[in-house]
Design a protein around this nucleic acid. Sequence first.
DNA 1: GTCCAGGTTTTTA
DNA 2: TAAAAACATGGA
Length: 277
Amino acid sequence: MKEDGNLAKKNDAFDLEQTLECGQCFRWEKQQDGSYTGVASGRILNISEQNRGHVLDDPFWKQYFDLPLDYEEIRENLAADDPTLARAAKFAPGMRILNQEPWEALCSFIFSQNNNIPRIKGIVSRFCVGFGEKIGSGYYAFPKAEKIAGLCEQDLAPVRSGFRAKYILSAARKVAQGEVDLEALKTAPLPEARESLMTIHGVGQKVADCTLLYGLHRLEAFPMDVWMKRAMRTLFPGREPESFGEYAGIAQQYIFHYSRNHPELFVTEKESAAVGM
DNA sequence: GTCCAGGTTTTTA
DNA sequence: TAAAAACATGGA
């Protein structure tokens, strides 16, 4: 285990809990011993504070956890930009944006709409168990778009995804037919990529932006859900997402996670709304 | 029983 | 255009 100062510094900016429980992914489970077990691109991994040095020797996982990117520097630049953003970033300095499979991110955030995180996890899990390839005892790969494209709404009933099932089918068919070319969207101009995703029935701007940020690693994408809208109104009045720069998506993740864990920041706004002010 | 959840589509005025 | 309502499901 030889680590030069540079690598050691970068590892400081990687915290498992902050990364895997900040709302960007739905397939990692914390074990009793504090480690995390999950599946990505058909690979099973158990990662802990103890074995992560070894895990990150593997090129795939190094990329998955976005180790090549210097989050320390990005965080410092964002912090210099705005004191509130500095506070949000400091709350989870070890958070990193994962390199998830594009198709998985697309489906996950279709399932996420008007839904809560525990239930999203359950739906994703049933989706994988029901339609994914078995890759180990109790572990399944994320189902292929080609397989899902051949199903009907009734087939998806056991997933219990409600009205979102037909959206998944629309996504699967467009992806399987190449009508939406996810790989190409990694380099397409952002507005163009977003528009392409929004041709899928059930994908609006927010789900498209989540797919871009979490699945296609478009770090300038800035998903605006109810939390982010509230956070922008309250904490960053007058600021546009684009003003956060090329790593706006990372700023978004700091703000989202910070806001969800500090609901007290928004109680006055809630009360004002209730009174009708 | 009612409300809400990392939205989007459909309906209505 | 813009604002409601509907959409499935399940936990609080």
